[in-house]
Design a protein around this nucleic acid. Structure first.
Lengths: 116, 116
DNA sequence: GCCTATCATTTCGCCATCGAAACGACATTA
DNA sequence: TAATGTCGTTTCGATGGCGAAATGATAGGC
């Protein structure tokens, strides 16, 4: 049986998790950055700039900049593709994995607290 | 029985909805703005600047600016409190209600599509 | 070996957001 | 009514994101 949410539950879940994210305040990721981060950690590698740009429907510079920012935060890393030096492979990091894990915990916790 | 999500499900749900938000591209709300909007539409009125600031753990100017932006988008409205003219009451709008409803639909749809 | 295509990045000017502090309007207290 | 407190907004300078276009490096076609 799929995960069935009523409208009120769905919106409350979204609100509650967003509130956690805002109150945490540490990492201040945009929607794009969050999507990129989760894509990198949820979908099978390798991940490239052009691949992410196509998936999100945004320009490549937008991806590059997002990776710059998240790279400074230690959430992702980059290395050149040895087999095709034009490509850049985006790599996961320990800090990034921990961040994503915490985010998952937030969602799970808030979902469990939802009125049934 | 509460809504139980496995880690993979929780993160995929979050990712999928975020991807919808990014790809939509129309309204480009920050985490703060999203939280404010959902608070206004989910919790009982009246809503004030100081109340939202306290709830989100951010400064009042941050709330004022977020309301300015969302006001221009037609997602919220403001009026002075007649009984205490220092206060500003934040009001819902039709456009805001529709936006929130669409957001709820996204979450419901993505939750239903989750692998069980 | 060229020429063109591809990939990621950098540059440009612009706009939105940020925290901190100052401000103006209104209410409350004495 | 004068002093103090509260509420929301505005200002300030700084930071960072944005799209579009240009750039540098590499690969592949011929």
């Amino acid at each position: 049986m799929p995960v069935e949410l009523r409208p009120g539950q769905a919106l409350k879940l979204w609100h509650d998790v967003m509130l956690d994210v805002v109150r945490d305040g540490e990492t201040d990721l945009t929607a794009r950055q969050t999507t990129i981060l989760l894509t990198i950690y949820l979908e099978p590698p390798p991940h490239t700039v052009r691949g992410l740009a196509a998936k999100l429907g945004v320009t490549k510079p937008a991806i590059t900049r997002a990776l710059d920012t998240m790279g400074k935060m230690g959430l992702v890393d980059r290395k050149r593709d040895e087999t095709d030096l034009r490509n850049v492979i985006i790599l996961r990091t320990v800090a990034g994995a921990l961040y994503v894990e915490r985010m998952g915990d937030m969602v799970i916790k808030r979902a469990r607290e939802l009125p049934r």
